[in-house]
């Protein structure tokens, strides 16, 4: 069986760099797959769905930014959580906005967790550690 990997939807190159660094800083060696917008994310997931026989797995969880071009995080979240096959994948909304309405809406759409991007780099490293260890060690996820 293939090793679990993490799918990250993030349009901003700086943020992608910061995330990658945060993972490295924690000493995690998980494969990170980056997509840059909602359409790419859905294409990637349906691609896996069609090639499942070839033993390619779904990501362990998805880190989803809300503000992305073409198709934003809310739309993608809605589509994933309404899809009969894809809805089992845990989705962690990872965004700058801390807004009551936004948070409520994301959970209503089926988000598994809502995390606000921390400001300092140290807290980012810590948050990444917590998310990763929660979903890959504490929690059980569908295979």
């Amino acid at each position: 069986m293939q090793k679990l990997f993490i799918l990250i939807a993030e349009d901003d190159a700086d943020d992608r760099f910061l995330l990658q660094t945060a993972f490295e800083e924690n000493g995690f060696t998980d494969t990170l797959h980056f997509v840059e917008n909602g359409i790419e994310l859905l294409e990637y997931l349906t691609g896996i769905m069609h090639k499942k026989n070839l033993d390619i797995q779904y990501p362990g969880f998805i880190l989803l930014d809300l503000n992305m071009p073409k198709k934003d995080g809310r739309e993608v979240l809605k589509e994933i959580k309404q899809h009969p096959e894809l809805k089992k994948i845990p989705v962690i909304v990872f965004t700058t906005t801390k807004n009551e309405h936004e948070i409520r809406r994301c959970y209503e759409l089926g988000a598994n967790t809502y995390v606000v991007k921390p400001v300092s780099f140290d807290s980012l490293v810590k948050v990444i550690y917590e998310i990763r260890s929660y979903w890959f060690e504490t929690a059980s996820i569908p295979v």
């Binding site: 910061l18 503000n67 700058t96 780099f121 140290d122």
Partner: peptide, 20 residues
């Protein structure tokens, strides 16, 4: 209010990263 948040957060994160 929303889109300005992101670059601001990044300025803070990079400044913090630089300092540390």
């Amino acid at each position: 209010s929303h889109h300005l948040q992101e670059p601001l957060r990044k300025i803070r994160t990079f400044a913090d990263r630089l300092a540390n």
